[in-house]
Each structure stands twice: as structure tokens, then as C-alpha cells.
Design a protein around this nucleic acid. Structure first.
Lengths: 205, 205, 205, 205
DNA sequence: GTCTAATCGAGACGGTACGTCTCGTCTTCAC
DNA sequence: GTGAAGACGAGACGTACCGTCTCGATTAGAC
């Protein structure tokens, strides 16, 4: 283990450090091995921790990976670049950058796949990854409305549905580009995507 | 689909029925067990086939599931409904219907997740699922251009990029809606999505 | 018997009961199935033990069977019946009785056959079965010499060779009678054999 | 050997060469791999023959190996060396020489072990190996009686029992020396053994 | 000079056991 | 009293052979 506590003999429990070490070891193993070859025994060894300790804190591989990956998305921010288009491009690029990291790639799709038959897991993903990032859509719209780029919402229910729709489109497109098409969601692509999103098919064609 | 053995004149020929039985058994097991609890031994038993027969034809679980799922997408068609919007709605609804089936749900995301660290697998997915369906985008655009709904393409390279972009958006959005948000991509959602796709964010807000 | 792990201070210790259960299950399976149809998976099941536990302790079927069979020979004793002839008859009858048991029959020849191409296995057999029983020959000779039935050994090297020769003759004859000729090594046969051994061909004919 | 050809009038006749090739390939494989790693598929390949052809002629591995090994023992002869002791030494040395060959070592014990639970196999071994060589004991005794080295048999039943006993002793001792003790049954050992056999324990000590 | 039937090679088939791996749980001992 | 070390029961993995079953292609004797 990467000794955080320098030679504490009298027994300061490293219980606090263990969590961080385990999540870091999980990401490391995701990078090296990918999800399907990652084993909890190996993660425990990397973290310098007994398997028992790991199982005491997480129910299984899926839960552990969700937590390890969720931390990656916390750094997302909505920079104020002055226009709606620029704001969108900024946040999509950030999102793409995170998705480009191998630990995110390897882990995210796999736990989403697992979540299809595991409601608790899907809820965990929704709560710790998806829902937390919808704030970006909300904030972007508010700013655009303040700037006059978008009209105000007449109907709050409709407004919520639109947020979900936009989120599905944005997240879905970036994920599909990155993981299925396996092409980089680079600046050029993000610009084309944003133009399409703002103006629609007719304009882009 | 799997191995090509054109010059195999001698020996007992492979049973054609076994292939179909194995793929059907795979889909059945996907529905009942999901990807992660599906075992090749169980598939073989369901198909009334020996494990060896299965391994003789597929390299592993991933390849098998790709082939089993790919067959589901072959039924996609682009109905001619008279307008671009109606055409899009029609094909997206079909796509959503397939994705709503548990065998597709369970299998598709999992193999995409696996493909992140397995280039051969990604290529197999691309060839047997993704690329085959891009024809729908191409055909839809041709029709719309014939009808005058979309302008002709000035630049063929740009045109190809746009097809890819549209495919990432459409497939990504439906997949995200269905598998991550876990909400049905029903007629109402498809109508909203199509409107957003055609007219852009401004109009939808 | 198997692995020596003298410096294993930590971790859960190996179950002592499992060893006994496995060896007993092995003998049971030898009786029911014979060597060639005995499978380690079946032995593990009979012993109420996981296959891994079995493989953790024995390298394979051969080593396991040697240990299971070796225990049978530990009950051999040299009774003091007053004369050399009677002593020999006594111990040969005991040996024959053990060899008559199906678990010995089934297992012994098979592992000897395997040992022909496996030096480590032959050494294991020699150490745990053959060499341990040579004590009987030595003790019998000492007694006979004390009684004056046999002359003392002039040459210790020659004496050792004679022990080996006698052992090859006695063990070989009983094994051949029991396993190849498939006739019982009963009292009558043992009497004839002992007479031949003591007095030679001329007298017996 | 095995082939039954009572009413085989029509159709392609079985290749005579195949039989010899298969038995030779079996011995070759016994030398290289030993009994337990010998597979019928491999023997078929070595013999340049299809598995089907092999199974058409032999019921299984055991029967095949018995036939392949039995041929080795046909070369045994009883040379007339003038005295009983010399005759015995001669034939025992020949027997030892055959048993020293790896194809005999590997195959013989294994099929004997298998025969313990397979009466048909034991009978096959008895008929094609054991019983055929008892002629040597009979012939040796006749000669010795003609020379006056041994008395004539008063009782024919007793005489048969003595032949069996001698055979068990001789074959058993050589086999045990060669395969269990794994020491060569060389001239010196054969001399000691013959002396013990003729004169008994007392004289040898 | 066909016919006819058993042979041949090749290799796929349904099975069974292999020995390894990982799972998640359970001791045991040392600090 | 916690935690490392590691054995445990369970069960899937992918491989190797088993003995059987198609196949199309010989082969010889019978017609």
C-alpha cells in the first residue's frame, strides 16, 4: 500500500484511507484489465487490503465500479463562455474528455449493461452519475434564457421533459461516438454536433 | 458470420440447424438470465448441443451474443411515409421497439462494453450491427432530397460525416433513453425527439 | 504425506477433517468405480469438499490414490508364531488379505503402472508403501536367526540384497496370484508358496 | 486376432496392412507417451488411418494395447542349456529383457490394472499373454525330469497347481523387480533368484 | 463392365472430465 | 476488535478425448 500514515505503531486505523485506496485501485485495474477481467481479489491486493475489508464496504464488483467511476464525473463544470453554443461546446468537450479516459470507458458501459437487470444498481448509477449532471443542462438553459437566446418555459412539466430529452441526446451522442463508433469526440465533431443540436437537420445538411 | 470454410470438401458437414438453435438459445438465455449470468454451457444445453459444437463455431460469449443480437436488427426497414419527419419517426420507433426487447437490452450494451478493450469484437459489432443500419440514414436522406425537403450534398466527404453524426445522435439518444434513463422511447418521445432533430434546440424550447 | 508448510503462521488453517474425508471417499470410489472411472470431481463430492480443496492438497489422481491405498498397508504386522514358516505364512496371509480388498486391487496396480513414467510417483509409492513393509522381512529374518533357523549374515551388503530379493519374490508372487491369475491367495496356496520359498523347487516338485 | 469374417462375401475387404500399422503405432505411442497419455485418435493419426477404422477392429484402448503388447512375448523360447538352473536363468533373462522395453512396461501393468474390473479383458490377457507362456514352465520341467533333476509328478492335479505356483513366483518376481523396485533384472539378479528358487531360503541366506 | 456393398479418409457430433479460476464466506492469528 | 492472510464450498471456464455418426470417395467381387 502507498503508506499514507507514516509508521503509526500505536494503531491509528487506516480505515479512512482504505476507501480511497480501494477506489483508486479499482480505477487502476479498470485501466489495466478492463471491467470483465477485473477481479475483486486483485483490487484488494492492489489496495493493500484484505478481500474481507472490501466486501464489508461494497456489495460487489458493480457497486464498487460505479463508485470508482462516479468520482470522475464530479469535475464537470459549465464554463460561462458567453453564448449558448459556446457553453454547450465547452461542457460536451469536458464530458468527452472524461469518457475518453480508459477507466471511464471500461467501467461505465459495463455497469450500465449490468444495471439493465438490477434496479438497485441502475438507481445507484442514476443518483451518482446521471442525475447529478443534469444540473449542467438546467444551468445552461437558465443562462441562455437570461441572455435571451432561448425563450422562457411556459410549462414546467414540459420543461422537465425537455431537459431529459436534451440530456439523452447529448449524453447518448457522445457515448455513441466514443464507445460505439470509436471515434474521438474532438473539437470539430463537437462543433458539428452543437450546430446540429441548435439548428436542426435542415441547417446541417 | 462465423468461420468461412469454403474448401472443406471432406468430413461430416456442420449442422446448419445447430447454428440456428444456438442463436435462438442464446437469445432465450439473455432474456431469462441476462448477459452476465449467461453461460455457454447453459446455452449449449438449451440448444441441445454439446459445448464443443458451440466453441467450434464461436470464439466466446461475446462473439456469440453479437451474432444473436445482430439478427434482431435485420428486420429494420425505412417505411415511406411521405415526409422526412414521418420517415424518421417510423424508423426510430422500430429501432426503439427492438431495443425494448430484453434480449437486445441485455446483450447489446454488454458486448459494446466488452468491445472497448477488444478491437476484433468492436469491428464485428460495427460490421454486423452498426454499419448495416446506416443504410437507413442514407436512404432517408435520398428520399428527403428527392422530395425537396433537404438540399443536395455539395461535398461527398462532408456528407459521409453528416451521416455518421446523425447516426450517433439517433442511435445514441434512443439507447440512452431506453437503457440509461430506462424510460420507454414511445410515440410521444419519438415525436419530440424528431422535432428537436429537425428543427434544433431553439424551436423545441 | 502431502505438502509441508511449516512456516504458515497466518490465514485459515487447512481442515484436518477434510484430508481424512477425502482419503476415505477415494477408497470408496475405488471400490465402486475402479481406478479408471474414478474422477476427482466425484471424490470431492463424496467427501463433501470442493474440487479446489482437493487440488490444493494433492497434485492429481495418482498421488491421491497412493495415499489412500498406503493407509491400508499400515495394519500389517509380523506375528510371532514360533517358527519361520509360520511367521511367513502369517504375514503373507495378511498381505494377501489386504490385496484382496477391492480398493487395494483397483488402486495399487494402476498407480504402479502410472509410476513407470513418473519418477516422483514411483518414489512416493516406494516410500509410503514398499519400503515401509520391508521391515517385516528384516524382523522375520532376525527372529529366525535368533531361533537358529537361519544362519547369521556374514556380509551386510549381501544381506540387504537378499532382503530385496525376498521382497520381490513374496510381494511379486502374491500380487501376480491375486491380480493376474485372479485366484485367491488362500491358506492352501500360502502354505505351498511358503514351502517352495523355504525349501526350493526340488522339494516342492 | 479379432476379425470375424464368417459371411463377408461382398464389399471392400479390410486392409491387412492397417492392422499391422495400428499395432506398430500403438507400441510407438506407448514408448513416447505411456499408457495414460496414449489416445486412440493419436494412434490412428500415427498409423495413417481414420479413427473409424480403428474402432471397427478393436473395442477400445485396452484391447488394442493387449494385442500390441502380446506380440512382444511371442519371441520367448526355452533354450536347452543342459541344466535346470541354466534353463531357468535363460528364460527369465529373456522375460526380463522384454519387460525392460518401454512399450511393455507402459502397457502391461496398465492393462492388468484395468483387467481387475473387466473380466473379458483379463481373459484376453490370460489367453494371449499368460497362458501362452506357461508352456515354458511345462517344457522346462519335462526336460529336468528327463535329465533326472526333478522327480516325476505322482499327481497330475498337484502338478498343474505347481506350474501355476511357479509361474506366479517367476513372473511376479521379475515384474516386481522391474516395475516396482525399478531395478534391472540383470544376470546377477537372475542368478540369485534362480538359486533361491531351486534351493530355498535356507540355502540362500 | 457395370452393379453393389463394405471399406476408406476426414471431421463434426453429443458427452464427460479435466485442471484452473474467481466468487463471496469463513476461520485463525497478530497487533 | 480489527484486519491480513488464506482456506473453504460453489460453479463456470475453455480444452481434450471419448466413441458415434455422417459424408464423399475407393475398391473389389458378383453379376
Amino acid at each position: 500500500m502507498q503508506s499514507r500514515t507514516p509508521a503509526s505503531r500505536t494503531g491509528r486505523p487506516r480505515s479512512a484511507a482504505a476507501d480511497a485506496a480501494i477506489l483508486a485501485a479499482t480505477r487502476e485495474a479498470l485501466v489495466e484489465l478492463g471491467w470483465s477481467k477485473l477481479t475483486l481479489g486483485d483490487v484488494a491486493t492492489r489496495a493493500g487490503v484484505a478481500k474481507t475489508t472490501l466486501y464489508r464496504r461494497w456489495a460487489g464488483k458493480n457497486e464498487l465500479v460505479v463508485d470508482a467511476v462516479a468520482e470522475l464525473f464530479d469535475e464537470l463544470e459549465l464554463p460561462d463562455r458567453g453564448t449558448l453554443a459556446a457553453d454547450i461546446e465547452g461542457v460536451v468537450l469536458q464530458f468527452a474528455a472524461i469518457l475518453a479516459r480508459p477507466e471511464a470507458k471500461s467501467g461505465l458501459m459495463a455497469v450500465v449493461a449490468e444495471s439493465i437487470r438490477d434496479d438497485a444498481l441502475r438507481e445507484r448509477i442514476r443518483a451518482s452519475i446521471v442525475e447529478r449532471q443534469k444540473r449542467l443542462v438546467l444551468e445552461g438553459r437558465s443562462r441562455a434564457q437570461a441572455r435571451g437566446e432561448l425563450p422562457p418555459e411556459p410549462n414546467p412539466e414540459e420543461a422537465a421533459r425537455t431537459v431529459d430529452l436534451i440530456f439523452d441526446i447529448v449524453a447518448g451522442a457522445v457515448v455513441h461516438r466514443t464507445l460505439v463508433s470509436a471515434e474521438p469526440a474532438d473539437e470539430e465533431w463537437v462543433r458539428s454536433f452543437t450546430r446540429m443540436l441548435l439548428l436542426g437537420l435542415g441547417s446541417a445538411a
